[in-house]
Nucleic acid binder design. Structure first.
Lengths: 219, 219
DNA sequence: GTCTATATAATGATAGAC
DNA sequence: GTCTATCATTATATAGAC
C-alpha cells in the first residue's frame, strides 16, 4: 500500500516511527531520550542516525509528506469534498501519523503547506467535475472559490481538533471528532449550498458592479 | 478604552506585557531570562512576581481574555460576519497582542475556547438579526448553522495565518493577511451565499427525508 | 551499528543581600 | 521590590569502547 510497509524495519526507520508517535502524542518538546526509549535504542544512536533532533523532525515531516503524496484521494461523490484528513482518519493504522500530522499543522511549516495544496487540488478537481456534470453551479472565479472552500474545510476541521484538546498529552479520538463534525455540518452545509444564505442579490450585484467598474486605479 | 491603559506601569504589568510580546514573537519555548531581559528586569523578579513560567503564561492568557471580553463587537453590517480577529487586527496598538493570540490559538487551551465562543456568539447574533430583518434565510437549525459558519470563519483565517509563517520567529503582517483574505473571499462567499453551490435540491431533500424518518434507532 | 559515559550548555526556580 | 549568585535538573550532542 505505502512505502512504510516494505521491509522497513531498519533501526533508522524504527526510530523515525517512534519519533512520529512521540512527537504526535507529546508535542515537539519531547526529548530525544524519550524517543530513543520508545524505539528501544539509546539516545546516542538516534543522533548517530539523524545528526540532530531537528533533522529527525525533518525526516518525520518528509515521511508523512511522502505518505500524503502517495495516498490517492477517494472518488469524491458525497455531499461535500471529502478532505484527505477525513480519509486518513478512517484508517486505524494511521492513528499515530494523524496525531503527528495535526501537531505539525498547528505549528505551520512545510507539512501544512503540502497538505493545504493537496486539499486545494482536491477541491478544484471536485468542483470542476461537479460543474462539468451540471450538479454544481459554475463560478465567476473558480480558483478563488476553490481556495475559499478548501480553506474553510481544512481550517474548520483543524480548529475543531485543536478545540477538543483540553490538556496537553491527552489522547484525542480524531475519528470520533471528524465523524461528529461531519454530522454537525451536513445540514447547514446542504441547506446553504442548495438554497443560499441571503434572500436578496443586492449585495452580490453591487459587488459585481463595483469590480467591473473599479472606482480607483486597479489593474 | 481598555484596562491595559490605566496607570498600569507597575513592574508586574511591564513583565506581563513583555511576556506577551516574547511569547507572541518566539513561541512559548522562549526562556524566562529572555522575557526578563525584554522587560528590563532580572529573571528572578519574573518568578518572584508570577511564581513560575506557567503561571506567567496564565496571567498573559487572562489579560488577553479580559481584552477580548471588554472589546465590543462593531455593528455587523458588512457582507460577512466580521470576526473579532479582524477587528483587533486593525488596531496598530494591538499588534503584539494579536501575535500572542494567534500563537495561543494554535496550541489550543482556554484562550482558543474563549475566542471561539465569542465568534460563535457574534455569528448567532448576526444571523438572527439578519433573519429577523429578512435579509438572511431562516435555517432549519440556526444553532448548527451558526456553529458551522463560525468554525469556518475562524478556522480559515487561522489556517491562513499559520500558512503564512514560513520560518519561526518571522514577523507576520496580520493586517495585510486579513485584508487580502477578505478581498479573496468576498466574491466566492457572496456568490455562494446568494446563488448557492448546488444546482439541484435532491441531496438536501434526501437528507431531510433521511433525518425525518430515521432508519435506525435515534432519538 | 550500537552501546555507555560524559561534555557542555541552557533552563526554571531558589536564597539571601540590599 | 529588585538584584546577584547559585542550585538542580534537563537537554542535545560527542567520544570512544565493543
Amino acid at each position: 500500500m505505502c512505502s512504510a510497509s516494505r521491509g522497513d524495519l531498519t533501526a533508522r526507520a524504527r526510530i523515525r516511527d517512534a519519533a512520529i508517535e512521540c512527537f504526535g502524542q507529546q508535542g515537539f518538546g519531547v526529548s530525544v531520550r524519550a524517543i530513543a526509549k520508545h524505539a528501544g535504542v539509546s539516545a546516542g544512536l538516534v543522533i548517530h542516525h539523524f545528526g540532530s533532533k531537528e533533522k529527525l523532525r525533518e525526516a518525520c515531516d518528509d515521511h508523512v509528506i511522502q505518505l500524503i503524496r502517495e495516498t490517492k484521494t477517494e472518488t469524491l461523490t458525497s455531499h461535500d469534498s471529502q478532505t484527505f484528513l477525513h480519509q486518513i482518519a478512517e484508517v486505524e493504522e494511521y492513528a499515530g501519523i494523524l496525531a503527528y500530522l495535526v501537531r505539525a499543522l498547528q505549528t505551520g511549516g512545510k507539512l501544512l503547506q503540502v497538505l493545504y495544496e493537496r486539499t486545494l487540488t482536491d477541491a478544484e478537481e471536485y468542483l470542476a467535475k461537479g460543474v462539468e456534470e451540471g450538479v454544481i453551479r459554475p463560478s465567476r472565479d473558480p480558483a478563488k472559490r476553490a481556495r475559499w472552500l478548501a480553506g474553510a474545510g481544512l481550517g474548520s476541521i483543524l480548529l475543531l481538533i485543536t478545540l477538543q484538546e483540553r490538556e496537553p498529552g491527552e489522547d484525542i479520538d480524531f475519528r470520533r471528532i471528524m465523524r461528529e463534525w461531519s454530522e454537525e455540518m451536513i445540514l447547514p452545509a446542504l441547506e446553504t449550498y442548495t438554497e443560499g444564505l441571503l434572500t436578496e442579490r443586492t449585495m452580490l450585484d453591487a459587488y459585481l458592479l463595483y469590480i467591473s467598474d473599479p472606482p480607483e486605479g486597479e489593474s
